[in-house]
Simulated assay, not measured.
Amino acid sequence: MLLFRSWRIDVRCAALLLAAGLAAAPGLANPQPLPVEAPWTSSDYVRAIFAVQNGVITLPRRGNPKTEALFDRLIDRANIDRLMAEEASPTAKRQQILLILSATGEFRSRYGYAVALGDDVQNELIDIQIFRLALIDRLATLDMPDQTTWQRLTSAIATTLHGTLDTLAEAPIFTGDQLNALAAALARHYPMIRTRLSAEENTAIARRLERMAVSESDPGLKSALLAALEASRHDN
């Protein structure tokens, strides 16, 4: 099952990034009250996933009065906008985005696992993946100081993209509207994201997109897949 496979891939990637973040800021492991009316920082994201892991809160979802506001904050683009607008170095911003990417990777894994077990959180899984596409779009705009950093970030970005494609391949699990929304987000963000992919990774993703577009019967989803495919065919 692709959904479950991509869940396992994300767990490994996210766990490594979270470990790096927590090594630099061990206090983040202590659950604290999370803001529901103000943008989140990277520390809030990490505290949120630890709150779920430690049973302080349940997995946030819409329709649950106790956690709906937390879910809305979890996927709020204002969190990204605030970070990018800060007077901080590209290195500092990159580190903060990686922490958010790692924490949301853990959330994405938990939603994916819940869906695989039959829980009705498909909307939440789609929404957090759309947020993560916006996140790696912003990550791609930042300068990469050296080859090692570029390779590490390329790997994180590629993992996110392949997880998105895995979800798009799970048509029986999601509604057409859900898949169309995710595919449209991929098409919207891919032109920037692809600038940080290696030629090999871009080719691999393009081939997957082409196979999916050819076999897709839904006009809206096919159009979005073809738009992303077109973006992948331009030179880096």
Results as ranks from 00 to 15, higher is better:
L229A: 02
A85K: 14
H189V: 02
P31Y: 03
W7K: 07
G220L: 12
A171S: 15
D137T: 09
A213T: 05
N202I: 06
D143P: 06
F50K: 12
Q32D: 02
A231T: 12
V214W: 01
S6R: 05
A228F: 03
P60Q: 09
A206P: 09
P219T: 11
F71R: 07
L135A: 07
A25N: 13
A187N: 09
R207A: 13
A187C: 05
T67M: 10
L133W: 08
I100W: 09
V11H: 06
D81W: 10
A156W: 04
A116N: 09
P191A: 03
A24S: 13
Q129M: 02
E124Q: 08
A181R: 14
A25P: 02
L161T: 11
S198W: 08
P90F: 03
T104E: 07
S109A: 15
R8Q: 14
E230A: 15
L153E: 10
I49V: 13
A19T: 10
L197Y: 06
L117Q: 14
D44Q: 09
Y45L: 04
L221G: 08
S89F: 05
I193A: 11
N180K: 04
Y111V: 15
T195N: 11
E230D: 14
R8N: 09
K93Q: 08
A51Y: 02
S43L: 04
E216K: 02
R233I: 03
R132L: 04
M84Y: 08
R73E: 09
L17S: 14
E87N: 07
E86M: 11
L22G: 05
Q151L: 01
